[in-house]
Design a binder for these strands. Structure first.
Lengths: 253, 253
DNA sequence: AAGTGGTCTAGACCACTCT
DNA sequence: GAGTGGTCTAGACCACTTG
């Protein structure tokens, strides 16, 4: 181990320096680094608390606290009696973890229709959001989500070409379940957090046609930037939601 | 104490009954009940962990875990060296805790303009949301929020008349800071959680005039139901946001 | 210096899952 | 029964705030 673990109390504290991390946070960082390195894949179990405690030379309680935080951040999932597992978007049976769209009535699953998938050069504004250089390779995906046959969401998705090398329309079309499950399994990219900017906009000719609404219809514009470990942005997405039969649900705390 | 605390292990477990709470959750419930009873007011300190532990006859660690959860839910705020305090909307200097509206540029404070405040009888749909009976007393408030002199948000707010007895236009107009601060201080009503339903809608004549936009302009409709302790709904609010210079920011985890 | 929350330990025992 | 996470305890010491 290149960076030996030390209790916060024994850490050097230069005058005016930023405060140092307690032990459990150091362990959390080590665990995140291992997740990032792909040591354990999505859905797999990580070692038990006792084993990790022994490995790191700390008490079980300290490991517990590290894992507690990671579970609270949805990086890990604890299952009593079974173990602790790497969180995944693939098995969320209820719904897509990041999709806040709810039907006014009922709860039917959404149908998907892939419209387009091609590799492009990133324009400046996308490159900036994804922390790439303008002109870098980028994958662009366009798709529709249907509810009872009626189009409800038009998504444009932009991904760094670098990370998603073998991504093709066929691959996307074959796949069942959320894209994020595919991204984890095929490309080792875990979406762990996202920021959304939401606005009301008027449907333009293009989106109106695809969503089968009159031009000018108010639509919810949801611009999502998704992050993987280490706060690295790895997906930009703009969804246009027809909110005549669905709404965006949010919880405030 | 009418309900003696017992470790989960010693609790009776009738066949097929719901699982019982661990000790720290029982303590959490007791603390919430005391908050609800107004034993400590918003912004005040609650007793120290050691004192609570002694009072409840448990270890400090158990009290800590109860408080940890409550802090995570924004019911309490811990301050090292000082104590643990009842969370409040009054002193949030940065911004209104439940308002997710962010300007595209800059970060100016929002100006407020009270349009109306009157007591009414609750129509059925509001009564239902607030778990009252149709026709029960209700306070209706209408106001605008401005950014740099331009109206950005039109809010309609409905409150149970029962809980907000002395609420008048004058009282609201005098008050500085978020309404929720006033509600805490004057009426002992703490908003601790809220659910929002968000849609894109077209401005009607009324709202278009007040927001100074053309009729038909896409607006963000934000319907918020706020809850106090014990998941009791105590406020319904519908905001219409002009998102031409601002957006609704959300974080997904 | 005293009092508060924050970290860390060690150990006991419980609840759940799988074999 | 063995192994996992979950609860609870008791005690030591640290970090921060206030008098």
């Amino acid at each position: 181990m290149s960076t030996p673990l030390v209790p916060a109390a024994e850490l050097p504290r230069p005058e005016g320096a930023a405060s140092f991390s307690p032990l459990y946070r150091q362990i959390k960082s080590l665990l995140i680094a291992r997740l990032q390195a792909g040591e354990w894949k999505a859905g797999e179990a990580i070692p038990s608390e006792l084993e990790l405690a022994a490995r790191f030379g700390v008490s079980q309680g300290t490991v517990r606290k590290a894992i507690d935080e990671m579970a609270a951040e949805n990086l890990l999932v604890r299952r009593q009696g079974k173990g602790t597992f790497v969180a995944t978007h693939a098995e969320e049976k209820i719904q897509y973890r990041f999709l806040r769209l709810v039907p006014d009535e009922g709860s039917e699953a959404l149908g998907r229709q892939l419209l387009d998938c091609r590799r492009q050069r990133a324009p400046a504004w996308i490159a900036k959001a994804l922390q790439m250089r303008a002109g870098d390779a980028m994958v662009e995906v366009r798709r529709l989500l249907h509810s009872k046959g009626v189009p409800v969401v038009l998504d444009d998705i932009w991904l760094p070409g670098q990370l998603f090398k073998g991504l093709t329309a066929e691959r996307l079309a074959q796949h069942r379940g959320p894209f994020y499950g595919l991204f984890e399994a095929e490309f080792g990219v875990h979406m762990i957090r996202a920021e959304e900017k939401i606005r009301a906009v008027a449907a333009d000719a293009d989106s109106a046609a695809l969503l089968q609404v009159p031009v000018g219809t108010p639509l919810l514009s949801v611009e999502r930037l998704s992050f993987t470990y280490g706060d690295r942005p790895v997906e930009l997405r703009r969804g246009l939601y027809n909110t005549s039969t669905h709404f965006y649900r949010n919880e405030l705390n």
